[in-house]
Design a protein around this nucleic acid. Structure first.
Lengths: 103, 103
DNA sequence: TAAACACATGAACAAATATTGATATGTTTG
DNA sequence: CAAACATATCAATATTTGTTCATGTGTTTA
């Protein structure tokens, strides 16, 4: 049930790559910005004061890890979190950081 | 209730630093190895086939972020996860990665 | 079809980071 | 106190990674 399973070295690498992607403030800001509803690349760049190129680069990485997905709507592409797993995890972690208890 | 709270930019930086620490395979292996019960530095190094120096460096970072804590027992220092928050989070994330469903 | 718009990509560079090897600190035992 | 042991720290290096600038791709509108 609640038995702890230690991941293999391979799994650990995969898990680390996901964490690594979340370990950048810019990428986290993008993710949280897209948390409530899909956002266009331009909107992300303008609202977060980032260059369009930079946003695009980060989105590519996030896309590659299936953390976000985007769908075209006319000229724009709207990005949202890939699934509920991801968004739940983000919100959970945010809460973990907010809390300060040591036990 | 289940209202999403978007962290401020400062919180995003702190959150990113935590993720960044978890975003290294070696560090993750160390953490999972110490998940069940405290482990000495030498045991970690030997079991995970890492140099003692490297393990010590990583433990320093993990210690700084209060992800692990160690207490001396004679010559050795045994490290364990800092609190249940951290261990739960690790286990949860491991499960997230293991699951493959898109919904 | 050509121009305008929105986004993606490639090359290049600076900054951050993991790892190593040598050395220092602290603890125990003779 | 000296030697042995376990861990920590320092300096240096090699790799990774975030960011920028210039350019490319695809979609819409005139």
């Amino acid at each position: 049930m609640s038995k702890i399973t230690i991941p293999s070295q391979l799994d650990t690498t995969i898990l680390a790559e996901t964490f690594k992607l979340l370990g950048d403030p810019t990428r986290l800001r993008i993710l949280f910005f897209c948390l409530e509803h899909p956002r266009s690349v331009g909107d992300i760049a303008a609202s977060l004061d980032l260059s369009q190129s930079l946003v695009s680069h980060h989105l590519r990485l996030l896309r590659g890890a299936r953390l976000v997905r985007g769908n075209r709507q006319a000229k724009q592409i709207f990005y949202e979190l890939a699934d509920k797993h991801v968004s739940d995890m983000l919100v959970d972690m945010a809460h973990h950081v907010c809390e300060d208890s040591d036990d």
